[in-house]
Amino acid sequence: MAKRMAVRNLRLCTKDCLCLYVCPTGATDTENSIIDTEKCLGCGVCADACPSGAISMVPLEYPPQQKKAEAVVARANVLARSKALQEQTARQLARQAREDGLYRLLTAVTKSVRLVNEDLLREAGYMLPQGAPAHALLQSLVEAPPAGFPVEAARELLARIPCNEPEGKEP
């Protein structure tokens, strides 16, 4: 089975068309310029031939993410809680804002804090959807779902994204 697939970045593609000439299955020649994943063999000749560097070979499997020190994760979680409160506060203040400038500024703060917090939690163990922390979280939500939780969505995620490291507690 192929271990990677070709993906075209339309912002970089300068339509030199070499990918069309070299692809053995015609996967690169499509009406919407998106490489056909059904046809792609993952051979990489298109990426090698592309003069604008617009095609990259995206892996289908990923190595386990880096382990994080407990002391770092504990500190990151404290900061993440602070950021979540800031995001919620800014969201509510934006809703209340009467002036247009203030509304836009607080909306920007809401988005900014969310992005910073995503980055923080990514480094605190939730980098890969395939990682053990993401899986353990989905599993616990499926087993003891909060009221109204979309259990089917979590189940589908567990089925579609296999875990790429041993699950459960570390030795």
Binding site: N77, L85, E87, R114, N117, E118, R122, Y126, M127, L137
Partner: peptide, 13 residues
């Protein structure tokens, strides 16, 4: 609030 951030981050991933 934090779970929402974990999930939106994994969506980006």
């Amino acid at each position: 609030g934090e779970l929402s951030v974990v999930c939106s981050n994994l969506a980006r991933g």
